[in-house]
Each structure stands twice: as C-alpha cells, then as structure tokens.
C-alpha cells in the first residue's frame, strides 16, 4: 500500500514534470538543429558563406536531443523490449519479472551515470574543446549525467511500483 503510494507520488510530483521539462529542452535542441542546418545550407548556396562550426554545434545538440529524451522514453514505456515470454505471465510473477529487470536496468544506469560523472572531470581537466569554435566539451558531458540521473529515478519508481505489486496480497 505504502509502496504503491510512494511510487505514484514520486512519479506525479517529481519524475513526470522533470521528464517533460527535459524532453521539451531536447525537442527545442532538435528544432534548433534543423534551423541551423537549413540556414547553413542557405548561406552556403546563396552567399557561398557556410556557418563555421555548424558541424560541431550539431554534434553538441545531438547530446541534448538524445540524453534529455531517454528518461521520458522509459517513463512512457516506449523503449523497445521483447515480450514473447513475459506476455504469458500474470499477476505477482509478472510483477516480479518487472522488478528484476528494472533492478538490472538501474544497476547499469547507475554505473553509466557514475561513469558520466567521472568523464565530466576528465574532459574538464584535459581542457577539451570543439575544433572550429573551441566550445568547451564538459557542459555537454554534464547533460549525459543529468539524463542518466533522471533515468535512474524513473527506474527507481518502477522498482517501487513492481515491488508493491509483488508484496500485494
């Protein structure tokens, strides 16, 4: 009972708004990317003057597009999985499977996020920048961490929800 409430509360008050916000920023990055390339092509074709560094800006924007949308995909269950076996499972056994798989997912995402944090330190310490415009690399490495943390939160709520169903009478 308590666990069910906890997971619903987490989802409603913390996770859903964060996922929505992250996804919105990611979508804006995607739209910005589209306009950047269109303007670059236009300037190059009409004025023979491409935008210097458009290439690397797209690369950085891709980091926003991907890592700010990953968690929302987990929340809305659009990440791809194969349900050929689990479709036959019902009730508590199914909940148990969901509990285990979410736990495994959380494990790898904690490691991935931790690795991301270490990498922020590394790219800062080594002063890595982009080639043409010398834009620092590390803020975009932080985006990986933010996306990872939110993904972990979604998984944690999934775990609590599955656990509450496993323990249900």
């Amino acid at each position: 009972m308590f666990l069910g409430k906890l997971s619903r509360g987490m989802e409603r008050w913390i996770i859903r708004p964060l996922c929505l916000g992250f996804s919105t920023v990611g979508a804006l990055a995607l739209i910005g990317m589209m306009f950047l390339v269109v303007i670059d092509v236009f300037l190059r074709f009409v004025f023979n003057r491409p935008i210097l560094g458009s290439y690397e800006i797209v690369e950085y924007l891709m980091v926003l597009v991907v890592f700010l949308s990953l968690a929302n995909g987990q929340l809305s269950k659009t990440h791809v999985s194969v349900e050929v076996v689990t479709q036959y499972l019902r009730g508590r056994i199914r909940a148990f499977f969901e509990f285990i798989t979410a736990l495994i997912s959380l494990g790898i995402f904690i490691l991935l996020t931790w690795g991301g944090i270490l990498q922020v330190g590394h790219v800062r310490a080594t002063h890595q920048v982009s080639q043409a415009l010398a834009i620092p690399h590390w803020p975009f490495q932080i985006i990986v961490v933010l996306g990872g943390v939110l993904f972990c939160l979604v998984l944690a709520a999934d775990i609590v929800a599955a656990l509450s169903r496993v323990l249900e009478k």
């Binding site: 690369e59 980091v63 991301g116």
Partner: peptide, 26 residues
C-alpha cells in the same frame, strides 16, 4: 569496462551523421 561506459554513450549520440535519425523522424 567502466571506460567503455564512460565514453560510448556520449560518442554514440554526439554524431553529425547520426543526426539524420531524429531529423527524419521529425
């Protein structure tokens, strides 16, 4: 192995060539 986890996610995403995927989806 941690090195792989540190680098692969970022590098997979931060790719100009891969930008066609979200843009064509859009």
């Amino acid at each position: 192995a941690m090195g792989v986890l540190k680098t692969v996610p970022y590098t997979t995403a931060a790719s100009f060539v891969m930008s066609v995927i979200p843009l064509f989806v859009l």
